[in-house]
Design a protein around this nucleic acid. Sequence first.
RNA 1: GGGGGUGUAGCUCAGUUGGUUAGAGCGCUGGCCUGUCACGCCAGAGGCCGCGGGUUCGAGUCCCGUCACUCCCGCCA
Length: 614
Amino acid sequence: MLLRANNVWWRQKPMTHEYRSHNCGELEAKNVGDQVRLSGWVHRIRDHGGLLFIDLRDHYGLIQCVVEPDESEFSKAENIHAEWVVRINGPVVARSDETINKDLPTGRIEVRIEQLEVLSKSEELPLPIFGEPDYPEDTRLKYRFLDLRRETIHGNIVKRSKIISSMRNRMVEQGFMEYQTPILTASSPEGARDFLVPSRVHPGKFYALPQAPQQFKQLIMMAGFDRYFQIAPCFRDEDARADRSPGEFYQLDIEMSFVTQEDVFEAVEPMLLGLFEEFGGKPVAKDFPKIPFDEAFRKYGSDKPDLRNPLIMENVSEHFRGGGFGIFAGILDKDEKNAIWAIPAPTGGSRAFCDRMNGWAQKEEKQPGLAYIFFKEGKGSGPVAKNIGEERTMALRDQLGLKDGDAVFFAAGNPKDFAEFAGRARVRVGELLELTDNDKFAFCWIVDFPMFEWDEENKKIDFSHNPFSMPQGGLDVLTNAKSDEELLDIKAYQYDIVCNGIELSSGAIRNHLPEIMYKAFDIAGYGTEVLEDKFGGMLRALQYGAPPHGGIAPGVDRIVMLLCDEPNIREVTMFPMNQQAEDLLMGAPDNVHPEQLRELHIRLKLPKTKGEGV
RNA sequence: GGGGGUGUAGCUCAGUUGGUUAGAGCGCUGGCCUGUCACGCCAGAGGCCGCGGGUUCGAGUCCCGUCACUCCCGCCA
């Protein structure tokens, strides 16, 4: 039942008000005897022939109204339908003890209908509100205004509003100020695909919608402001996912001057902790451990580890080197970079469980298999244990702190290639053995991201995250690097904040020195001209006294998803597009009038549509 | 761009080795009902089995193609 309640209408109106003296959620036992006027939607009708109930609903809640046949309005009430908008006048009466509804905040009372006025009728509903049964998503999106009347999503949207409001308050309390940045701006040469907006005044030229206010927030620091934030709309023309809307999303964009990485963490941690404690409904781990990028892969096989899962992987190569398990010994001999990693599985010590994991590895992960040992009766079982012998098996068990009833799985080869698979195995073990505590929030920082990465497609070095990050070691480390390999080893003051295995945000201490910017872009294959052409404003700003600065930009939508416990972003977005980036309610994108195109100096050259050209 | 899943009444789904008239629940319409709150009872309407082709005496069921939705990969500095 509707539990919106606790929301007292902003101001009590007199009975003489056109539509309402109270809202549907605020009446309680103390109002018994009051004459009230309510307006809302007909949520549900229960017609007993001689007695008729209307559940009246508005934004604030639900209240039962009742009318008896001798009342003049009874026949009118018999002819109304779900989702009609009506106004009701009448006294608040107490329900008898047997008829109290404990599931409803207003369940101790009801309103006796003395006057009933239909304010607006509804066609037969394409989408029922009451009971909110599953409905196809395209129907929900086409009739979003109805969908949004449903309890769960209505509550999510209200909660989203409160979350954003709380974010703002928490930021302002910490001395941050909110500034707006442009929506029409310039395209940038790397990153996501831009949304382009043609210029009428400048034929053939285009604005781009900002992928993030990245450059603007840095310019705000260079302009001498400090501690900026903004609930910032961001636009990227990339394909959607369950947790990613097509086209647009919001970031809590943050930037600060004269700060180190630690200062950013100190600003963000209490904000997120407070927010999750306020809205999450689950315990939040107070500690935000800082895990270097390399270590995250080594221990968790991921740069966004879920710390609710207690399992930590370990390198166990030494127990296999030169041992009786030929496959692993061979892999270790083949290349000194190769290793054997162990994924411990406490309580997983049965052949059934090990087989299940092995089957998963083969079927879902297309791996040749997943080697394992399980421990019982004081010794290790399974083919691997047999091959390496009891001494090595026991040494392995001791290193991992395992005991009878436990198991361990192995991944072998070059960690670069198998780390992510091993990470997924870790996640799966944690879930299947119920070692992962789903009933909490666990944050961590991932720090020391590499400055560059190898772009396999273009066979060149590219920025791994943000081209504006400060390399650890500054200009020297860039100029001194002798090889691609050394360049790829360079770390940046670049960090992510992760919650329950979900990346909420990337951030960085920025590079505020023009010579480093030239050099870094040079390494990534962007010449001076590109830099000056595309980042001219930024470069100019760096040359006139730029403060050291840094920031971060947590994704608002993902935070709301976590706090509403919704796996799909469309459940926390009021008017989302579908996965094909169409707005089924407003009908976007759409054709435009030829005159509009002419004004913009645009002629269409369309691809053959599917099914055409027969 | 690629892969997986789904597609039968407005909705959620059932539908046997291919076999006569394709079912149920919810919703909708009509009727009955004075204490329900998932009200109850009775009756009714509602189907190009996503679409196109093929196999077959016969296709909701098998095969091919296609479309739609959804999830994932690519992509998302």
